[in-house]
Design a protein around this nucleic acid. Structure first.
Length: 274
DNA sequence: CGATGCCCCTGTATGC
DNA sequence: TGCATACAGGGGCATC
């Protein structure tokens, strides 16, 4: 389940591995994930182009081509981007292969097929509503405590679904929203409107810390996530609540609970998170 | 217009 | 052991 830290890890590796490479061939095994444009235009728009840079917006990975076009991926639940040398067996569930002029390959693979792929000129990036309406990047300098307080002001509902709302904050998903709230000692069902200032501050600091830490450990391989080399991230052993239902809370020892909140499975400690 | 819930899909976990 | 069914989930979309 790639969230901000996982997509950022892929981005950083892509800067090292595929930036500057020329795509000579696009092999479409299953074009279903391509939302815009048609598969014919997609192939024609990419072949012969050089990857000039790789950016990230929330959970979207954006490859900038020398045609100025943007090749955009949202990996959703089971999408993968894998850079394998030619001698290595190609990944399972491969849907698109980008073949470079030096015969190395970038594979886009996806088990469940939810991932989205786009090729767009930069001025049309806002045709993707989730990008147009995206909230601030939590690791950018514009994301200050004051800004966070302002965002939460007037919002209704429970804090956990709100942290996952991409129009509120970019890139935070099910794993890191829960880890942040655990670290902050805040119950995921707390009403946003009733959070005290110091609690908002605790959530803010926890969120930023958890995301930075997860990037440092190259993300969490929960579900299908693998990095660009096909390796798992190192953060799963450092997750404090996610996936630990019934296990003892690392802080107080009471068993971790699991509950559906906002339609998503949510882990928390009843005793530590108030 | 905001909140809620269904849906896309398939590997994995659970139940009998 | 093996089969059938439930469940997981990001974000788009329909619905109320």
């Amino acid at each position: 389940m790639p969230e901000l830290p996982e997509v950022e890890t892929i981005r950083q590796d892509m800067i090292k591995k595929v930036k500057g490479k020329k795509i000579v061939n696009v092999d479409l095994r299953n074009p279903k994930n391509i939302k815009i444009p048609s598969s014919v235009e997609f192939k024609r728009g990419i072949e012969g182009k050089v990857i000039q840079d790789i950016k990230r917006k929330g959970k979207y990975l954006i490859l900038i081509l020398d045609s100025r076009d943007l090749l955009i991926f949202h990996l959703k639940l089971t999408g993968r981007l894998l850079f394998f040398p030619p001698e290595k067996k190609e990944p399972d569930y491969t849907r698109i292969v980008f073949i470079f002029s030096d015969n190395t390959r970038l594979f886009f693979a996806d088990i469940r097929g939810f991932a989205d792929v786009y090729l767009l000129p930069p001025e049309k990036i806002d045709t993707i509503p989730a990008i147009k309406n995206m909230g601030p990047e939590p690791l950018s300098s514009e994301f200050t405590l004051e800004k966070f307080k302002k965002i939460l002001k007037g919002k209704k509902g429970k804090i956990k679904p709100l942290l996952m709302d991409q129009t509120v904050i970019a890139g935070v998903g099910n794993i890191y929203s829960q880890e942040s709230l655990y670290r902050a000692g805040i119950h995921p069902e707390r009403s946003v409107s009733r959070l005290k200032d110091e609690e908002i501050e605790a959530i803010y600091r926890s969120l930023v810390e958890v995301l930075k830490e997860a990037i440092r450990y190259r993300g969490s391989s929960v579900d299908a996530y693998l990095d660009l080399n096909g390796k798992e991230g190192d953060y799963v052993p450092r997750l404090k609540v996610y996936g630990r239902e019934g296990e003892n809370c690392l802080r107080c020892g009471s068993p971790i609970k699991k509950k559906k909140i906002g339609g998503r499975g949510t882990y928390f400690c009843e005793r530590c998170q108030k």
